[in-house]
């Protein structure tokens, strides 16, 4: 139920953020294509930077999700077209399955580096833009996993084996395909969201387990979809 509520809130947030763009009065007069191309050619290489804070991961956790994650995004604007980005985040989980009493715990920072491409680079008069991009993510973490004592299902069940492993070190890296928007809200304040297709490249396993949750990636599936919602501030330099 909590998950359904959170999905509803997230969807509402998304829709609200985009209404700003659709109904924005700040839409400037359109110029002809040649003028826009000329202006683009004459524009400087460096056109500013911004920082962003991802809030969907924390919101989901507060609404009862198993995973907490938040991250800070540093992004620069080159020619209003290429947007190199560095994302530094922190993810954690401390989850217990109430059915089988298995418990998994981990927390660690993660990093992503990549580049976005502004699809509307010739339309700087718009209050926002649509972009696609690519990220390479990496993390190094340790995890604990424990559960009830295992009882032999055969041979009278007289032999039991404890199940508890702590401090298992692992690392993972992955690729993300990104599609998103950035929308101006007020002066230097922006909002934005991204849809991400994540593709796991590597996740170190142990003889007794494989990591269940990877900070920055999520559940240890070979691929997954993910949504992120950012509050963004344009830096004055």
């Amino acid at each position: 139920m909590k998950k359904k509520t959170s999905r509803f809130i997230i969807l509402t947030l998304l829709l609200t953020s985009n209404l700003f763009l659709l109904s924005s009065p700040a839409r400037a007069q359109k110029k002809d294509k040649e003028t826009l191309k000329k202006e683009y050619k004459e524009s400087p290489l460096y056109q500013g930077s911004w920082v962003g804070l991802e809030i969907l991961g924390a919101g989901n956790y507060l609404l009862g999700g198993d995973f907490f994650s938040t991250e800070i995004i540093f992004q620069s604007n080159l020619k209003n077209r290429f947007l190199p980005v560095l994302e530094v985040g922190y993810g954690k989980t401390d989850a217990t399955n109430n059915t089988n009493n298995l418990h998994y715990k981990t927390s660690a920072p993660y990093f992503r580096i990549g580049m976005d491409y502004n699809i509307f680079y010739l339309k700087p008069y718009l209050p926002g833009f649509l972009f696609g991009g690519l990220r390479f993510g990496m993390t190094s973490f340790s995890y604990d996993v424990d559960g009830p004592t295992m009882q032999d299902p055969n041979y009278g069940g007289v032999i039991t084996v404890p199940f508890s492993y702590t401090g298992l070190k692992s690392n993972a890296n992955w690729l993300e395909l990104v599609l998103g928007i950035k929308v101006k809200i007020y002066k230097r304040f922006n909002m934005g969201w991204t849809v991400r297709y994540k593709l796991r490249m590597n996740a170190k396993e142990h003889p007794n387990s494989q990591p269940w949750y990877i900070p920055g990636y999520g559940k240890n599936n070979s691929n997954s979809f993910n949504l992120m919602y950012n509050l963004i501030y344009d830096l004055p330099f």
């Binding site: 399955n97 298995l102 559960g147 494989q210 269940w212």
Partner: peptide, 14 residues
């Protein structure tokens, strides 16, 4: 014997 964990929902295996 190798007690093994894959994920939180599937339990442990030997």
């Amino acid at each position: 014997n190798i007690p093994y964990f894959t994920n939180l929902d599937c339990g442990t295996m030997m």
